[in-house]
């Protein structure tokens, strides 16, 4: 059974078509790139998969469950239990320390409090000694690793990473990709990396290409 199964997905924003995916599926445990130029709807698709943005049409099955047939609370629970998300702008909760950021993720996922699991997740990204550091005391690279640890501490079946490398230099790009692949493998999760960053192509072979359906309004030659 595929972990992601999308049929007849269509979505338009402000009258302009953004997504049109007749069929697409990703088998459990695979690592997949979601490629496409800026404005091709990668973020929109990630949000639709995560149950954050309802698509106009189509069906999305995650682990066999129709995401958009669930009620709002059940969808939130499904997201918490099943998915770990890494944002481009990391966004750690500044009011909480590093360990608390991970505890927060487990609590919101409905998992029991487990200091051991938190310590282990941070250890795996090499931050075992920074448990009580505040996000603003961390370097950008450390923040990136905390964000990845936070996405995997709930042992998700699916890791969604939206442009995780776009803002990084080559060295850090490689490092973050390694980390993502390694962490996904460690918890046996399916990994979907949305990116327009060509440097990721050699590392992940499964791919889904999104065409740009409409011109970017900012580019000034919209039909």
């Amino acid at each position: 059974m595929p972990l992601i199964d999308v049929t007849g997905l269509r979505h338009a924003i402000a009258g302009r078509p953004v997504l049109d995916i007749p069929h697409w599926s990703v088998e459990a445990g695979r690592h997949c790139l979601l490629l496409g130029p800026s404005g091709s709807g990668k973020t929109t698709l990630i949000h639709a998969l995560a149950g954050l943005k309802r698509p106009d049409q189509g069906r999305i099955l995650l682990d066999g469950q129709a995401v958009w047939d669930l009620n709002a609370a059940a969808r939130d629970h499904l997201r918490g239990r099943l998915i770990g998300i890494v944002f481009q702008t990391l966004h750690l909760v500044a009011a909480l320390d590093v360990a608390q950021n991970l505890h927060l993720a487990r609590w919101l996922a409905g998992l029991a409090s487990d200091a051991g699991a938190v310590a282990k997740a941070l250890d795996r990204v090499g931050l075992g000694a920074r448990l009580s550091a505040r996000p603003d005391q961390l370097s950008q690279g450390e923040k990136q690793r905390v964000a990845i640890a936070r996405a995997v501490v709930t042992e998700p079946k699916l890791i969604l990473a939206d442009e995780p490398t776009s803002a990084l230099d080559d060295e850090n790009c490689a490092r973050v990709l390694d980390l993502l692949l390694e962490q996904a493998a460690a918890c046996g999760a399916t990994l979907l990396v949305a990116t327009h960053d060509g440097r990721t192509r050699e590392r992940i072979t499964d791919r889904m290409e999104l065409p740009r359906l409409s011109a970017l309004p900012a580019e000034g030659h919209a039909a």
Binding site: A50, L52, A72, D76, H77, G80, H91, V93, L108
Partner: peptide, 16 residues
Amino acid sequence: RYDLAVMRALGATRSR
């Protein structure tokens, strides 16, 4: 706003 949105992304319900 962003913190609250991230919490939602981590699985928080609206009521939480």
